[in-house]
Amino acid sequence: MSKNAWQDNRGNKDRTITNPQGQGKEFPIEGRGKAVRVEGESPFLIGEAMTGGYGTGADILHDCTVAVEKGEIAVIVGPNGAGKSTAMKAVFGMLNLKSGSVRLDGEDITALSPQDRVAKGMAFVPQTSNVFVSLTVEENLEMGAFLRQDDIRPTMAQVYDLFPILKDKRRQAAGELSGGQRQQVAVGRALMTQPKVLMLDEPTAGVSPIVMDELFDRIIEVARAGITILMVEQNARQALDIADKGYVLVQGANAYTDTGKALLADPEVRRTFLGG
């Protein structure tokens, strides 16, 4: 029996009265607060000393810090269940922090809701269910730009330049695309906000090696355009290879932090996480 009596459906699976498909699972923070300017030197984006977990459950993050400098790529790696995705979500305001803070571009945004963070220039690509399957590719991109009031066509053209295949398929429902193409739609949707920071949760999960290389190339291209990138990756070796900064998390805490190259060279990291 689940703890929340209202979430207990008693195993009912009657689809004529209930439609769990697409129902939200995340508990984003309410975010009634405002962004506060902070003085002093600080990385462009930093989630500092974050501690917290989902709902009333046990803490998953323990004093965990991830940061990325403007225009750089930071990668979070670590074993399964290390809290990599959780750290990412915490930075985006998808879980309640007991302590710690998130700062973006000189502002403390810990109290902002995810929507407000989107407005501040953050974009997030979840690992799964990251496209609107029943909407066309073009509508997916439009939804990415939902908060924008200006002309979105130039940005859409840039996305199509980055992912030419999407232009051909723009009238197709995103659900009909292949896995790799979907990931492109997902990244494209996130880019539509013209974000300062792009956060990617395992963008290459479940795609073939060729598509994976292609995706990494595109991500580098995005970073060169001046967009800061924070991502979680399973393919640690390849990811650290392109990373300016790498974070190895173990059980929700920082284990190793260094440049990507240095981590790749560190024998201890190689032995424990990269399989020799």
């Binding site: 995810p114 979840p126 909407l135 939804m143």
Partner: peptide
């Protein structure tokens, strides 16, 4: 319309709609 599309998007995937800044 944008609002209409946001309704369809919300129906399709609530969490992603949230990430796109759509107010539930």
């Amino acid at each position: 319309t944008r609002t209409g599309k946001s309704m369809r998007a919300f129906s399709d995937n609530e969490d992603l709609a949230l990430l796109s800044g759509i107010n539930p």
